[in-house]
């Protein structure tokens, strides 16, 4: 770029208008054209294929890594305007989320008697809307499916807008989806981001190499939303703390039994 700008200045000075001089009469040069087509193409080709490997490491890690390495898995659900963090517990698998009660359902998802009846279907017509709204926003804001066996040990109760904790020196698979509109889960310090799309599950991988406490204040990394999601887009700030592997295992991988070795 500097070269081209330099060339422009040189050309401007060297070939400025002088009286009585005629410009050179050239129409082009095929060899030059071929040259300055092929050289940039070659450079760009190299760039493309070198960047492909980095891309694969970030986006294809869960499929391509050897089964001996056990990643930390975290499910992030974007919501206007906060990040919800869910840990899978001992089995390392998430249950199903974002399935919401409908007026036609026979049972509430958690099989409890909300509004005094078995399911939304049995509610009086004038209460259905209100009760469902209340259930879906207060009782079960993440739309958890309680029947799913994989979700029995999930750590989801405090999910709403809590700080995310990840282990140091261990690959972290972040699974991303959204409750309402598109957000973009961004960790600026780690150079990773991915949109959270309602109805889609995305995943990327990164490996923190230092604990937050070693880094000193403020003691956490910031999470930002970088896809416009409405009025409070800029307030969608989260926190991520890197803790030791032992701490992480104790806090997030013991629920519902012993963690796999």
């Amino acid at each position: 770029m500097v070269l081209v700008q330099g060339a422009i200045v040189v050309l401007m000075v060297r070939y400025r208008h002088r009286a009585g001089r005629k410009a050179r009469y050239i129409h082009g040069n095929t060899r030059l054209e071929v040259l300055w087509t092929i050289i940039p193409a070659a450079i760009l080709g190299v760039l493309t294929f070198s960047s492909k490997q980095v891309w694969t490491a970030i986006r294809y890690a869960p499929e391509s890594r050897p089964p001996t390495i056990r990643p930390a898995k975290i499910l992030v659900i974007g919501q206007m305007f906060k990040w919800n963090i869910i840990y899978p517990g001992a089995d390392g698998e998430f249950g199903q989320y974002l399935v919401y009660a409908k007026p036609t359902d026979q049972w509430w998802p958690d099989r409890k008697r909300h509004g005094g009846v078995n399911g939304p279907r049995d509610l009086p017509a004038d209460q259905v809307e209100f009760e469902i709204e209340r259930y879906n926003t207060i009782e079960n804001p993440l739309g958890k499916v309680y029947d799913d066996p994989r979700g029995k040990d999930d750590d989801y109760e405090d999910a709403l807008a809590r700080a995310m904790e990840v282990p140091v020196n261990r690959p972290v698979d972040v699974y991303l989806t959204s409750k309402d509109v598109i957000h973009s889960f961004t960790l600026p310090n780690f150079r990773v981001k991915l949109d959270t799309v309602p109805g889609l599950m995305g995943v990327f991988t990164f490996t923190p190499t230092m604990m937050s406490e070693q880094l000193g204040p403020p003691g956490y990394f910031e999470i930002a939303c970088q896809e416009l999601c409405g009025q409070g887009h800029f307030t969608m700030q989260g926190r991520m703390v890197v803790i030791s592997q032992e701490q992480y295992a104790a806090k997030h991988e013991m629920r519902g039994g012993k963690a796999d070795p």
Binding site: Y15, R16, A23, R24
Partner: peptide, 11 residues
């Protein structure tokens, strides 16, 4: 750039 090269440029 090559068009400007060797020209008689009026600014």
């Amino acid at each position: 750039l090559a068009t400007m090269w060797g020209g008689n440029i009026r600014f």
